[in-house]
Amino acid sequence: MKLNSTVALTLILLTMMLGSGFVSGLWGFTLGHEALKGVSQPDVSPTKKLATDKQANPGKEGIAILSEEEILSVVNDYVNGKGKEEAEQEKKEKEQKQEQEAETKAENNESDRAESEDNEDEEQIASANENFPIKSQDRGVVVEVVEAKQEGGSMLLKVNLQNDGEEVVRFLYSFLDVRDDQGKALSAITEGLPGELPANGEKFSGTVRIPTALLEDSQQLSMALTDYPDQKLQLKLSDIPVVR
């Protein structure tokens, strides 16, 4: 009887231990399952990955392989095209350089020509002015041409007047007679010359302006001046060189 009681107690304890272990295991599984919700294992299968990529890109084509002839043709076209562009660029640069050199040469020639003309004009004026002054004197009154030059469209004669006599002399310059070496009367305008010349020996200066259009065929000029209204003075100058 006592033995049966011990066996029964042992079975009861064993049953309780198994039940407790089962409940503990189930409870642990439940906690782990709840904790791992939303976590998935990475796909590390190469076969599956290739299959997935193939399904994801069904329209993707493979790389086109060119033949050797096609490659050589492309390279040849590129080289020839590049060489043609470089040749055209070099030709264009050469033409531009030639144009610049031509322009520079033309400018230098024009500058040299202008300088040569200026020098010739200066030499001509200097040579003409070697003949000055040209003087004429009557009754103590002196008139002289001391210089000739070109200014604008006119030839200018610088004229000095001086009265060393005893009486005042009056002039009316509309009576000034200017002629070329062919005897043709020329229009002349006086500037700065006094209408009344006092008898004190003072020198007065002015200009006589003659349009160059009237001097095309002239080499020398003559000029005559008299007093007004008596017209006693005979002031005449000749061989006045024309400068251009």
Rank of each mutant, 00 (worst) to 15 (best):
K2P: 00
N4D: 03
N4I: 09
T6E: 00
T6C: 02
I12K: 06
L13H: 00
M17Y: 05
L18A: 15
F22Y: 12
F22S: 04
G25I: 12
W27D: 06
T30Y: 13
E34W: 07
K37H: 06
V39R: 14
T47H: 12
K49Q: 07
K49G: 05
G59W: 11
K60L: 13
A64C: 03
A64V: 12
I65Q: 02
L66G: 10
L72P: 03
V74H: 08
V75H: 05
N80Q: 05
G81I: 04
E90L: 13
E90I: 08
K91V: 01
K91S: 08
K94E: 06
Q98T: 02
Q98K: 15
R113P: 00
N119V: 05
E123Y: 11
A126L: 14
S127D: 09
N129V: 04
K135N: 08
Q137G: 00
V141K: 12
V142N: 14
V146L: 03
Q150M: 15
V159H: 09
N160M: 08
Q162F: 03
E166W: 11
R170F: 14
F175W: 11
L176R: 12
V178Y: 05
R179K: 15
G183V: 12
S187E: 11
E196L: 08
G201V: 07
V208T: 02
V208M: 02
I210C: 02
P211V: 06
P211N: 11
T212K: 13
A213M: 10
L214T: 12
Q219R: 13
Q220C: 01
Q220T: 14
L221W: 06
S222V: 00
S222T: 04
A224Q: 04
Y228G: 00
P229C: 07
L235G: 04
L237H: 08
